[in-house]
Design a protein around this nucleic acid. Sequence first.
DNA 1: AAGTTAAAGCAAATATTTCTGCGTTAGAGT
DNA 2: ACTCTAACGCAGAAATATTTGCTTTAACTT
Lengths: 183, 183
Amino acid sequence: MSATPSPARRTGGRSAAVLAAVRSAVEELVAERGSAQVTIPMVAERAGVNPTSVYRRWGDAASMINDLATYRISPDRPLPDTGDLGEDLVRWAQEIIEHFRQPAAAALLRGGAAAAGAGDSDCLRNRRAEATLLIERAGDGPPVDDVIDHVIAPIVYRVLFRPWSLAEDDLAGALVSRLFAGR
Amino acid sequence: MSATPSPARRTGGRSAAVLAAVRSAVEELVAERGSAQVTIPMVAERAGVNPTSVYRRWGDAASMINDLATYRISPDRPLPDTGDLGEDLVRWAQEIIEHFRQPAAAALLRGGAAAAGAGDSDCLRNRRAEATLLIERAGDGPPVDDVIDHVIAPIVYRVLFRPWSLAEDDLAGALVSRLFAGR
DNA sequence: AAGTTAAAGCAAATATTTCTGCGTTAGAGT
DNA sequence: ACTCTAACGCAGAAATATTTGCTTTAACTT
């Protein structure tokens, strides 16, 4: 057998334009109406794209939203590197908080949470990978799960259920110092 | 002006039966297929109820799921009362963890998260009220927000994105002791 | 026990979403 | 340039969901 004939994807040009248009449309609509009220025909119209294209690429609204939520923060942006793990974590947390203060980002996270099932999807997996990287680079630090439990989880909780409380003064600093307190 | 003629609601008997049937149907379906894939006709059929009744009572699937998610744990169950705040919090956290290990409860929380918007809904508000009660009763203890950030938030995060990790040994104890560590 | 009417049921009309087949456009490799 | 065909667009069909007007049932009040 030939080793996967690789059907030659065509991701550039027109396809890329469709993706970009759909992405913006989804973000707008999800922020305006909530992920549960966003339908594919609605997205297609706003994006100026044929609904069929959206159906064929994503299948249904939930998958589409989850997919777009996962890649919302650039996964290859540079991470803070001050030489001090604590400081790096604070800055990293601040970036995440700022990100999720955008209503569109928060709405996408809600959609991602809804789609997350029995391990088949997790739109925050990139954040976990980043935490792992920061800690490994420092050579020593709290377990990744502690960072998730006490820095990411509180942020996510607030994004989902108490978005206004993300604006609290020095939230990132408070969370990170609690992280180091119990060691 | 007449003081609200009180249209005399009829919540008993048949209405209560419909509510119970719909509640079970929603829990089953949401656990089986995820909140995004649950439709009102589907729920009505499983519940053996006319779709129109569901439309008229809840309007749409998202509201229905959010509404049922909010009252999933009995809000007036007795809270732990050992005389020791730390111990009470551990037991309380354990109850919550156990609760959300039921797939139906986890699925409802996902639905509630999706529906939670700009403060218009929060299916965890009862948990916050309980934390407040425990702390006030003890007369002294960490701020409620700390309990939310470092006990509830990690639990919720795990329910939503890493459900298998809820089974971890003494999760409740670990979270609560971290809560008291930074004081 | 009788009266009032909220809430449920039913059925038909309407609206929306989803699927399918086929022609068109244009991305990627030669 | 030219070829091949992935991905898009379009239109009509099919499937689903939602609304509406009316009838029936039965929960509360007196």
